[in-house]
Design a protein around this nucleic acid. Structure first.
Lengths: 327, 327
DNA sequence: GCTTGCTCTGAAAAGCGTTCCACATATTAT
DNA sequence: ATAATATGTGGAACGCTTTTCAGAGCAAGC
C-alpha cells in the first residue's frame, strides 16, 4: 500500500505538505489540499500508525491492569475508563495480571518500551519500589490506595466503608460480627481489617479468629464460608463482606442450608456490583465506574503535563450505605 | 534514553550485532554477546517497541470489540481470549462499540493502519460489505455467525440453543411460550426467532405478539418484561430468554410481584453467565470462555498463515441443557 | 590444493511520518 | 515606502530497529 512519499510524488508536492494535510495544519493552499485529499482517497492511503507512534513518541493507548478480566467490579471500573478514554481518542490495552507480580512487571514494561502512554492499575501486587521505578517511564494511576511516593491514586476509602458497615451492623444490635475479604495482605484489606478491629474493640468484643475469612475471591468461596460458619463455636450474627458476589454466595448457601438472612445472619456487601441490587443485598459502596472515570482524567492530565516530577495526588471516593433486605 | 546505536557504539560493534543479541540470533560470538548484554543492562536499555513494530510490520496486539465492557457474557469470552493470547505473547486492545457501526468502523480501521495484527469481534453491527472490505487488511474472527464470504467465525449455535430450550419447555407441557432477546435483527436473534416460531408451529400454537420482547439488554429490561406480562391477555406460562442476567431480572421481579417461578412462569436462560448458577436458573448454553479460546486460536493461525485468501472457516459450539430450578 | 559450507560481522536500505528550519510570497501595519 | 507579520512550501533530520547482502575467516571434505 502507498506511503506518504508516494502520495507526495503523485500530487507533485513535498512530503511535508502531505503531512500537513493529514494533520489538518492550516498553512496549506486549499486547492492543493483538495487535490492531495483526492489522491489519498484514490490510493486508499492511510497513515501507518506505527510510524506515527515512532515519530511522535505517543501511541494514544493506555494500559489497564486488573487481576482478572471476568469480574464485575473491575468491569465497572473499565467501563468508566473506557467511556472517558473514548472521548479523548485513547484506546485501552487491557491486561490480566492474575495478581502475579511477574506478569504485572511485564505490563509495567510496556511503559518503558513505549507501547502505552500511561497505565491505570485497578489492582496491583507489585512492590512499591517497582512501581516507583516504572513511574519514571510514564504516568501510573492506581485504583486503590498505594504507599508509594510517586504514584497517584483514585480510591475508595475502604477503611471508611468498613467503618460505616460495622457501625450500621452494631446499631442494629450485632456484636458477633465476622468479615470476609480477598487478598489477605493487600493495602485494601489492611484498611478494612483496621476498621473491623477498631469497631469491635469499641464495644469490647474480642473477635474470634473463626469469624474471619480471607482469600475469598469467588462466589464459591462465599458459599464455602457458610459451610465453615456452621462449625464455629460462637457463630457470628452478621458478616461484613468486601464484595457483593461473595456476599451473594453466602446468602444463597445460607438459604440452601436453612439459615435465614437477615434473621440468623445479616450480610453487608461492600461494592457496587449489580448483583447486590438484584439480590437486594445491603451494601456500602461508591461507584466504581466513577472511579474509572476519575482515574482516566487524572492519567490524561498527567500524560499531557508531561512533567514526571508531578506530585503525588490522591482522590478519595466516599462510600454510601444502601439499605436493602439482608440486614 | 539510550538507543541501539549508542549501545553499538559503546560496545564497539555494529548496530546489526546488537540487534542480533536482542533477538537471540545464534551467529554472535559469545564473548561479544556477553559484553553487549552487560552494556544493555548498564544503560538500562530497552527496545522502542514502536520502532520494532514499524520495522517488522507486526504489533503483537489484537483487537477485541464488544458492545459493552461491563457484561459478563462478553467478559467470559474475553477471559478465554486473554488466557490464550497471553500464552502466545499477544496483548489485547479491548474496544467498546456500543453497537454503533461508526465506532466499529474506527476499530476496523486499526487493522488498516497496522495498530493491531488481527481482530476478534464478539459482536458486530457493521454490514457484511464493511467486514469483507476490512478483512483485506488483516484477519478478523467474529464470535457470532456471520454471512460474509471472508470472515471466519466461532459461534454458539443459537438456533439449536433455542430449539433445545423450546423442546424442553414443550416436553414440560408448556404451550404459551414467550421469548426475550437483545438486538431485534442481529444474526443471532434471527436464528433464535426461527427456532422459536418453528417449534411453536410444530404444536400448532400461533404466538401472540404480546409474548415477544426485543431489545432486552439489561437486568432492568428483564424486570420490565414482567410488568408488561401482567397486562397480557393470555399470559405465557414460560419464557425463553437469550441471556441469564435478563432471566434474572424476570425472576426477581416475578417473585416481587408474587408470580411463582416456575409454577406460574417457567424461565430458561440461554448463556453461561454465573448468575444463572447462583440463581439456579435452568439454562441452555455452551462455554463462552471456550469460545474465546477458540477464537484466538483461529485468529492466531490466520495471522501466521498470512495468506488472506484463506477460506472462510466456521466453528460451532454445541449447547447443552442444564436443568435447574426455574422450570 | 581447492571447493563448499559454516560462523561471524558490518554497511546500508527499508519501514514511514513528523517537525524544524529556511525561504518565498503576500498582506497588513506604521 | 518600509517594516513586520502571515501564509505557504520544500528539504532534511529525526525517531529506531530489522533485515538483506556482501564479505572475511576458518574448518571439513574430496
Amino acid at each position: 500500500m502507498a506511503n506518504i512519499r508516494e502520495i507526495a510524488k503523485l500530487a507533485g508536492v513535498s512530503v511535508s505538505t502531505v503531512s500537513r494535510v493529514l494533520n489538518n495544519h492550516p498553512y496549506v493552499n486549499e486547492k492543493k489540499r483538495a487535490e492531495i485529499l483526492k489522491i489519498i482517497e484514490e490510493q486508499n492511503y492511510v497513515q501507518n500508525s506505527n510510524a506515527v507512534h515512532l515519530s511522535t513518541g505517543k501511541t494514544m493507548v493506555i494500559g489497564v491492569t486488573l487481576p482478572l478480566v471476568n469480574n464485575q467490579y473491575y468491569s465497572s471500573i473499565i467501563e468508566g475508563i473506557a467511556a472517558e478514554a473514548a472521548q479523548h481518542h485513547y484506546k485501552l490495552m487491557v491486561c490480566q495480571t492474575n495478581n502475579n507480580p511477574e506478569q504485572e512487571r511485564s505490563i509495567l514494561h510496556l511503559l518503558k518500551n513505549k507501547k502505552i502512554d500511561g497505565l491505570i492499575m485497578c489492582s496491583r501486587s507489585s512492590s512499591c519500589e517497582t512501581l516507583n521505578e516504572y513511574a519514571g517511564y510514564g504516568p501510573i494511576i492506581t485504583c486503590e490506595a498505594n504507599d508509594t511516593t510517586s504514584v497517584s491514586s483514585v480510591h475508595i476509602d475502604h477503611y471508611k466503608t468498613f467503618l460505616i458497615g460495622m457501625e450500621y451492623l452494631m446499631k442494629k444490635g450485632h456484636r458477633r460480627i465476622g468479615y470476609c475479604i480477598g487478598r489477605k495482605n493487600s493495602f485494601n484489606s489492611q484498611h478494612r481489617k483496621r476498621a473491623y478491629y477498631e469497631k469491635l474493640r469499641s464495644i469490647d468484643v474480642t473477635p474470634s479468629p473463626e469469624w474471619s475469612f480471607e482469600e475469598c475471591l469467588t462466589i464459591q468461596d462465599g458459599k464455602d464460608v457458610v459451610g465453615k460458619l456452621l462449625h464455629t463455636e460462637e457463630r457470628p450474627t452478621a458478616m461484613i463482606v468486601s464484595c457483593n458476589h461473595i456476599a451473594a454466595g453466602i446468602i444463597k448457601e445460607a438459604s440452601r442450608l436453612g439459615i435465614r438472612v437477615p434473621e440468623d445472619l445479616a450480610v453487608v456487601g461492600c461494592d457496587d456490583q449489580p448483583i447486590g441490587e438484584l439480590l437486594e443485598i445491603t451494601t456500602v459502596s461508591s461507584s466504581s465506574t466513577l472511579m474509572g472515570k476519575y482515574a482516566f482524567e487524572m492519567l490524561h492530565e498527567r500524560i499531557w503535563r508531561q512533567q514526571l516530577d508531578g506530585k503525588k495526588e490522591e482522590k478519595e471516593l466516599t462510600p454510601e450505605l444502601v439499605e436493602r433486605l439482608t440486614t
